[in-house]
Write a protein that binds this DNA or RNA. Structure first.
Lengths: 217, 217
DNA sequence: TATTGGCATCTGGAATACCAGATACCAAAT
DNA sequence: ATTTGGTATCTGGTATTCCAGATGCCAATA
């Protein structure tokens, strides 16, 4: 007997990457604040070598900036970055729709509806809400069968969650998001590219506006 | 007096990253072949720590795959990856055009024409040709004023160069590329989004087809 | 002959040691 | 009071060391 799946071992760098990113997204560390390799490695209980790899990934993905021989600064949140991310998100989520529509079958559409209905089970917790909303978008991204696109959308969604968590706390309409998702699903059911694209763009524009309104600059 | 620019020091990891990537793109190392940290660090004259950082970046960008405790394998070139990259390239180069058109002035258009004319100075060298073609696309990407988009297009263009270098050697029409670029510039001059987008997509579809035809699978 | 178990030797992962740049502070000199 | 220079001590960058998983060979065994 053999394992067909890769069975990747759990590496310290991956663990560190996830932990630090989670801390940033959930605003456990403030944007603009400093981090230091030595103290980070202590609090995570690992040495600096795997930590450096985690930090490098975080830097390449735009979460932190490494200042050689000075320290690490958590990226600030500003209007320009939010705009950049939403420009990319619009173009690439539309691409995902374009790619997945020809691949759709009824069973898949049911699964999409199931994922969206998770939103209804949530009461107040903004982090849960965030995760449920993300699941919907990421599920569509996966269906595109384009791995690079999937990774890109994953990263963009994570950033939007980071930007938006404050907005979420100040209370956003959960029902609105649910029904905007439903409009997307309707478009998919009709296998209508234009209709679906419009629904996606409408949803993203709404999300963009809400976040910008809560930036407080 | 002070330096306003960051003045980043030259780090070994960046040097290693560029060297290894250049080797892959120029097919100095075969797709599918193995690399080993120890021998790489020796031939580059650096230790494994900065090398690991370079390798991690190359892995995140899709050039290599790290197999823990086994080695590093250079990514293979196959039809599916080529298609993925061109799907992304189309959507995102079109986005770049969309963003840059409102920012255009006559001086900038002159610069674009200048960059394109570099193609005419090239005789035979496929690497020079590749670089000149890339310069055109990357110059447009920069003008989009979206840093993340710029980075993404840079990466996608590098991959296409990697895929395409074999096709280039088997002889591609330099004049065709030049005139396809000219059509893009005409669209920009007219500040016509649809016209420019069509020209870009036409150019990319052509490029995609040429590369797929030379994959030899 | 076919199979198994152990060892030599590859690999990358992780921890540690060491070095140089950056910075802040404080005392000495003007 | 102000400037200057040295030093203590931060930082990340790099090199080195140590360790564990993976692999292949080969002899011992059934």
């Amino acid at each position: 007997m053999s394992f067909s799946k890769a069975e990747q071992p759990q590496l310290f760098k991956d663990h560190a990457y996830k932990e630090i990113k989670k801390g940033i997204i959930q605003h456990k560390v403030e944007p603009g604040s400093m981090l230091y390799e030595r103290s980070l490695s202590e609090s995570l209980g690992i040495s600096r070598t795997p930590l450096k790899l985690a930090l490098q990934q975080l830097e390449l993905e735009g979460w932190i900036q490494s200042l050689p021989r000075k320290g690490i600064v958590v990226q600030s949140i500003n209007r320009h970055d939010v705009d950049e991310v939403f420009q990319l998100r619009k173009a690439n989520e539309v691409l995902a729709i374009e790619l997945l529509i020809p691949l759709l079958d009824d069973e898949t559409i049911e699964k999409i509806e199931k994922v969206n209905k998770q939103l209804l089970d949530i009461k107040e917790d903004p982090i849960q809400f965030m995760n449920a909303d993300s699941s919907f978008h990421l599920f569509l991204a996966e269906l595109s069968q384009n791995h690079r696109l999937n990774q890109l959308i994953q990263n963009l969604t994570d950033h939007v969650n980071w930007y938006g968590l404050v907005a979420l706390k100040s209370g956003i309409s959960l029902d609105e998001v649910y029904s905007e998702h439903k409009l997307i699903i309707e478009g998919l059911k009709a296998r209508n590219l234009d209709q679906t694209t419009d629904a996606v763009l409408n949803h993203l524009v709404h999300s963009h506006r809400t976040i910008v309104a809560n930036l407080g600059e």
